[in-house]
Amino acid sequence: MVENRFGLRLLSHAVLWLGVLLVALPLWVAFVASTQAEGDLVSGTLSLWPGDHFLDNYRAVLFGAADVSVNVSVARMLLNSLIMALGIAIGKITISLLAAYAIVFFRFRARMLSFWLIFITLMLPVEVRIMPTFEVVANLNLLNSYVGLTLPLIASATATFLFRQFFMTIPGELLEAARVDGAGPIRFLFDILLPLSRTNLAALFVIMFIYGWNQYLWPLLVTTDDHYYTVVMSVQRMLAVGDADVTWHRVMPATVLAMLPPVLVVVLMQRLFVKGLIETEK
């Protein structure tokens, strides 16, 4: 057996707690800053305990215009982010599920070609083909719209692969049995395959929701109208004030609000999240 020494265990716990604190420190500092009065954030040192402006600051950014440079409330931005994240997550899952279904359960010409075409998208992250993608979206008149925010991002090789892997583990007898009972392809998809994929769907949804919520470059490019700003990109806009002082008492509540929803999703749905994370990388 392996020795079980008290000292070693103590050391492990100490290192882990140090790690936890180090990881949490930026969040704590941001929260503290978001509760301070305007004047306390201009000069001097920041206190490490929350101030008494929690309600004032959050109410101001949530319901009023977020900042001088961003003329829309954070509540509106959160709504935009939610629409984008849900659109991307649901869109990705739907089209990938259908595509994987076609590739696994049908035989048709150009099956492998379609598969490879989808595979290529893995190699083309938005960041490397920004200019031409932007032009395509501009030509389609999709700038400053929810469709423009979501549609170009919903093709997903990862999700298609994941569903393909999963569908291939479905025993053939199941399909035979369904066919004997007179179920067609659509019936089989909805009555048998979807219920079986429930956990996979949920796990993937968690990952894709976070992916969608955290989009930065794309919303930055396709939105010039404040009313379509998402919260993650707006925080940067609020910082870009040129020579004026950064209004930290506005930026920090917005920052905390921007990370709250995805962090909550991860914390509350941790099992699904870990499953999704490990499976999407397989």
């Binding site: 595509a99 075409l117 989808i118 290529i120 395509v136 170009p152 093709a155 392809p185």
Partner: peptide
């Protein structure tokens, strides 16, 4: 895995993914 046979259904299922891939990627 035994498969379904259908003339146009697989294409209809693939269409959204392929369209998005072609247009935006």
């Amino acid at each position: 895995i035994p498969v379904f046979r259908h003339r146009w259904l697989p294409w209809a299922l693939l269409a959204p993914q392929l369209m998005v891939t072609l247009v935006f990627f």
